[in-house]
């Protein structure tokens, strides 16, 4: 079928197995590294992370896509060791979570420079790690409207995706019109883009998931587990049943099973924020898949959602 860049090198698509397509080993806003209240020793980071990845592996998880962009605490040598010691494929991102996480050097950069940065990280490697990015992250800055910088990043991502064949994932699907326009202008087919976070508590009613899907875009229900039922839910939490019903509607009566991706957006060991207690990537196995089965979803459909769709999406198309 093809290949995918993981942090330990390219692998055949057929070896990816079940894919958690939007997760984080550890995410922190740029600058959070200056605040020692968040610091963790390497021992603590491994202690928080390895058991989660090992459980993911034992549950049958194959591939963990880290959606942490440039400047957000990406640590490729660490990811490589985690992958090697747990047997989980880890796919790293180039790109930015949003313009508001791009530091000054990139915030001032041209579309051409940003594209060169992404292409380098996909074809040569990230920093001096030798690990190549397998996906490009882009996103909408806080405030709900795409900023000029967000748009430059989207355009650069479209060019890099076209040239290298990797896919693009977005942080937020709100204000999607300019994004779709940019991808169109750059000639990137929308099935190479997953518009993410259509399901969270803050943005679900502002995200035109069916409209984007009708144009051919892929849709990410990727904040599963951030629930108002949690003891200390984050502001983007949503009642569990609301999200599940939204998802079932989208793949059922609305007919977009072929374009859906699902994930939990959990941090194994958050870097610059407390994280959300009790929420891990393994929500997929411990809660989400059982919920789907209880709702009558068959095994073939579950395979479509967690294996076939993300594999097709992640596979280099060039």
């Amino acid at each position: 079928m093809g290949k995918v860049n993981t942090v330990l090198g390219p692998v055949a698509t057929e070896t990816l197995g079940l894919i958690a397509f939007h997760e984080h080993i550890g995410y922190g806003m740029p600058g959070s590294e200056l605040d020692s209240k968040w610091w963790k020793t390497p021992e603590q980071k491994y202690e928080e992370t390895v058991p989660k990845l090992r459980a993911f592996h034992e549950y049958g998880g194959g591939t963990f896509v880290d959606a942490t962009g440039i400047c957000n605490g990406r640590d490729l040598d660490y990811y490589k060791s985690l992958s090697a010691k747990t047997g989980v494929h880890i796919v790293a991102s180039t790109g930015f979570v949003g313009g508001d996480t791009a530091l000054a050097h990139f915030a001032h950069a041209s579309v051409e420079y940003l594209a060169d940065q992404f292409i380098h990280e996909i074809t040569v490697g990230i920093g001096n790690s030798g690990a190549k990015a397998g996906i490009i992250k882009v996103g909408v800055s806080r405030g709900g409207r795409m900023t000029d910088l967000d748009k430059r990043i989207y355009r650069a991502a479209a060019r890099a995706a076209k040239l290298t064949g990797v896919a693009v994932m977005t942080h937020l699907a709100i204000d999607a019109e300019p994004a779709i326009e940019i991808f169109g202008e750059e000639g990137l087919p929308l099935d190479r883009v997953v518009f993410g976070h259509v399901d969270d508590g803050v943005n679900h009613d502002k995200s035109k998931d069916t409209w984007i899907a009708s144009l051919g875009g892929r849709i990410g229900f990727d904040t599963f587990g951030y629930e108002t039922e949690l003891p200390d839910p984050p502001f983007w939490a949503r009642p569990r049943k609301d999200r599940l019903d939204h998802f079932l509607r989208f793949i059922g009566e609305q007919g977009y099973l072929g374009q859906v991706l699902a994930s939990a957006d959990a941090n194994c060991s958050p870097l610059g924020w407390p994280g959300v207690k009790g929420h891990t990537v393994n929500y997929i196995f411990e809660d989400l898949i059982p919920d789907l089965r209880a709702a009558g979803i068959d095994e073939a459909t579950i395979t479509t959602i967690f294996v076939d769709n993300p594999a097709d999406f992640l596979t280099l198309h060039n």
């Binding site: 922190g28 806003m29 740029p30 600058g31 959070s32 200056l34 605040d35 400047c71 508001d100 996480t101 530091l103 000054a104 915030a107 800055s141 806080r142 405030g143 803050v202 984050p234 502001f235 983007w236 610059g272 924020w273």
Partner: peptide, 27 residues
């Protein structure tokens, strides 16, 4: 401000209010 990280400008709170003086003072 343009050289600050997002941690200080758009923190993971709703709304993303930039840091006040006392937090900068402590840091």
């Amino acid at each position: 401000e343009e050289n600050l990280g997002g941690y200080f400008l758009t923190p993971q709170t709703n709304p993303p209010t930039p840091w006040p003086a006392d937090k900068f003072a402590d840091l």
